[in-house]
Nucleic acid binder design. Structure first.
Length: 289
DNA sequence: AGTTAAACCTGGTTGC
DNA sequence: TGCAACCAGGTTTAAC
């Protein structure tokens, strides 16, 4: 489900409302990809900082108040707890922010109850994750983030840098994009769409992409992700923003999920192939090796 | 070292 | 209608 646009839509939906919110309680449901890594009680009383995104991960900073609020005689930890939650929406996850949360449904696997509302993770397939980490650059968060490639809109990712990184890879360009270690954010939908827009065959080896074509691919990735963000992401089945609204990009997809339909540019029948265990959709006429 | 399968889950759709 | 097979926005881990 969630690729960079969906995760960023989610981040924008929760960052403002949750900034400065106090955690009243946390609840975990069925197991997700990894255990939370702390007792739910550890989160109680902490305040939420500025929610950030790295790739498809969200980071919710949580820290003790600067002001010591404990009354005399109350037990306080010697060192104030601070850290945060690293969240991933996996394949089918979405976050909702509601003021009066109903009883959790069968797929609601994490609640962060705050004085500004309840942040609830719904994730039928449970490939998502909510993991406590003492800092973004400490384990376990650092271990999960360190392999990630460049942010697609990072100005430091120039066409020259992108091309140079692709030159090091012999795998099909589609597989390299999905791996996320050159550039993060593009998942199956947007990798297919960007390759179509750039006119590049998905099976082309990454190291066979010329400098001009790499430049065109980077531009296509950026415009595809930016357009999806404008439309609130894509909703195939599960994804909604924090208010429950669906994305609209899927209706604009030129190739994704359209095998058997005519290409909107040339009229050829769009095709599907499997790469790295994922479906790739493409136009064999418009996309050249 | 670098690329490719297997694994984690649930549920909707397709086809016999 | 029932049931099996296949498919789905991801990514770590193990195996060639």
């Amino acid at each position: 489900m969630p690729e960079l646009p969906e995760v960023e839509v989610t981040r924008r939906g929760i960052a403002g409302p949750l900034l400065g919110a106090r955690v009243l309680q946390a609840r975990v449901g069925k197991p997700l990809r990894w255990p939370l890594g702390c007792d739910t009680g550890t989160l109680t009383g902490l305040r939420v900082g500025e929610v950030a995104r790295r790739g498809k991960y969200l980071w919710l900073p949580l820290s003790q108040d600067a002001v010591h609020e404990a009354g005399a005689g109350e037990q306080m930890p010697a060192v104030a707890a601070h850290g945060g939650l690293l969240l991933h929406l996996g394949m089918s996850g979405s976050l909702a922010l509601v003021h009066h949360a109903p009883a959790p449904g069968p797929h609601d696997h994490f609640d962060l109850v705050t004085d500004r509302g309840t942040l609830r993770l719904n994730d039928p397939r449970r490939f998502g994750a909510v993991v406590w980490s003492s800092a973004l650059d400490a384990a376990p968060a650092a271990k999960l983030l360190h392999r990630l490639g460049a942010e697609p809109f990072d100005p430091a990712l120039t066409p020259e840098v992108f091309h140079a990184r692709l030159q090091l890879r012999r795998a099909p360009v589609k597989a390299v994009l999905l791996a996320g270690d050159v550039l993060v954010g593009a998942g199956n939908i947007y990798a297919c769409e960007a390759l179509f827009q750039a006119g590049i065959h998905p099976a082309l080896r990454a190291d066979r992409i010329s400098r001009p074509r790499a430049k065109r691919l980077l531009a296509a990735l950026r415009s595809t992700l930016a357009r999806a963000l404008e439309l609130g992401g894509s909703t195939l089945r599960d994804f909604t923003d924090v208010h429950g609204a669906s994305g609209a990009y899927q209706a604009e997809a030129a190739v994704y999920g359209r095998a058997g339909q005519p290409c909107g540019r040339c009229g050829s029948v769009l095709r599907r192939l499997v790469q790295a265990q994922r479906s790739t959709y493409f136009c064999a006429t418009c996309q050249r090796r």
